[in-house]
Design a protein around this nucleic acid. Structure first.
Length: 431
DNA sequence: TCTGGGGTCCTAGGACCC
DNA sequence: TCTGGGGTCCTAGGACCC
């Protein structure tokens, strides 16, 4: 009886996290990769954004530019370009496995899910966590770990501990002696800058942070770290968010395949990003009231003149019409463009987002039904025949046969795995 | 030669108002 | 010539996350 009361009083949270997620997904679809070091590369095949256990062992640092990895190490590694369509699909499958086992989950990121354990007797927590791990491994091929604790921060910390455990499931309570040796830099919410400052104040472990003077911590470091401290003490400051909150911003930006000097090419890139951002916008039934554009020179060529302007524009009425937003974005870019610079990166961001169903409509013009109809035709066409089937000429992408002819500035993705699960034409071949 | 993308939240400072 | 205080809103920049 007393046990039940205690269970009700303390709510517990679990965090499931796929091990080396992107690499595990690649390996689960391509058996040739198993037992070999695998890394996944960022857009443009520039940096390492995921490493499997073997590449970590070879000493490949997270975020390392691929060209800086010593050739003798690089030769041993199989690289893949990031294939987010594939990873997102596997992520959805894992979430549905968890939903079948637990009353409420929060899809926190592409490879992490928080699980609400409230109402489940604490003696069953680790058993159920182990069951979840086993199902995910069996049904998707992805290994994962589960961390359990009374707050999200402690669940995160447990998950990190679980990565080096035998069972893959770890629970941490605020008084756990493990906090005495757990480095503060591995606490959720403590990044590089904070680690350095905390270290100078003698705060080196999770335990040091939990035990620090509250007022000093708040005044020296702000409310965010003060919340982290309370979470380490077992006092929840962050709830489980079952439903994704509404987006505040939608951004599309890229490092370009080459340094652009011509205005025409820069305008093509801006048009491409604006078009893609509008697609994302409409897929969420959103509209934007602001547009922000930035262009940047190559920061790695410090011998060349640098120029990194940005500019924003507020629309009279919120819009989800690619034609309108594309014109605004190009107008902003045109106003910032200066010849004789080499532009290496650019982006378009849509701001002040709202739902299309709260559209007030212009008092005089009314809601533009024609615009809505045109955009729907475009989106449906692209959905049916693949992204890029119908687009704007100003983006300079041209259909050629069954594929799209890429402009010279487009991004490199030379090591891409097939879209096994999201494109009929790319289904896995058994023989 | 080659160096990621997409988000959120907080804070400080300026503009503006009463 | 001197000269306030408080509130809000907006923006830019910094820090963090995956």
């Amino acid at each position: 009886m007393a046990r039940c009361e205690r269970d009700q009083a303390v709510s517990m949270i679990a965090l499931q996290d796929g091990n080396n997620f992107y690499c595990s997904v690649e390996a689960s679809f391509d058996p040739r990769l198993r037992g070999k070091p695998v890394c996944v590369a960022s857009s443009g095949d520039g940096c390492v954004i995921a490493r499997d256990a073997l590449s970590k062992k070879l000493g490949v640092p997270m975020g390392a530019p691929i060209h800086q990895i010593p050739p003798e190490v690089r030769r041993q590694i199989t690289f893949r370009s990031a294939n987010f369509a594939l990873y997102g699909d596997i992520s959805t499958r894992i979430a549905s496995i968890l939903r079948a086992l637990f009353p409420a989950i929060e899809q926190y990121s592409i490879d992490e899910n928080f699980i609400d354990l409230t109402g489940i007797p604490s003696k069953d927590h680790e058993r159920l966590a182990a069951e979840a791990r086993a199902r995910i491994l069996k049904w998707t091929g992805i290994p994962s770990c589960v961390g359990i604790g009374p707050t999200k921060t402690l669940a995160k910390l447990s998950n990190k501990r679980a990565k080096s455990s035998i069972s893959g499931v770890v629970t941490t309570m605020p008084d756990d002696p493990a906090l005495l040796t757990y480095p503060v830099e591995d606490v959720w919410g403590v990044g590089r800058k904070l680690t350095a400052r905390l270290g100078a104040d003698g705060i080196l472990t999770a335990r040091d942070l939990a035990a620090a003077d509250v007022d000093t911590l708040r005044s020296r470091y702000g409310v965010v770290l003060a919340r982290t401290q309370r979470e380490l003490q077992g006092i929840p400051c962050a709830e489980l968010e079952e439903h994704e909150p509404q987006r505040k911003e939608i951004m599309v930006s890229r490092t370009l395949g080459k340094d652009i000097t011509s205005e025409t090419e820069l305008m093509q890139a801006i048009a491409t990003f604006a078009q893609r951002a509008c697609e994302k916008l409409r897929s969420r039934q959103l509209q934007a009231a602001g547009v922000w554009v930035f262009i940047q020179t190559n920061p790695f060529k410090q011998n060349l003149p640098q120029y990194n302007p940005s500019k924003s524009f507020r629309l009279l009425m919120p819009s989800a019409d690619t034609r309108e937003i594309l014109m605004v974005a190009q107008g902003l870019a045109k106003a910032m463009f200066r010849p004789s610079y080499g532009y290496k990166k650019a982006g378009v961001s849509l701001l002040d987002l709202s739902h299309t169903d709260v559209q007030q409509g212009d008092l005089f013009a009314g809601i533009d039904q024609r615009s809505k109809a045109i955009m729907e035709v475009m989106d449906r066409t692209n959905q049916k025949f693949g992204r890029g089937s119908m687009g704007f000429a100003s983006t300079a992408w041209r259909p050629r046969g069954k594929t799209l002819e890429k402009p010279a500035w487009s991004v490199k993705r030379d090591m891409l795995s097939p879209a096994y699960t999201t494109d009929w034409k790319q289904l896995i071949r058994v023989r």
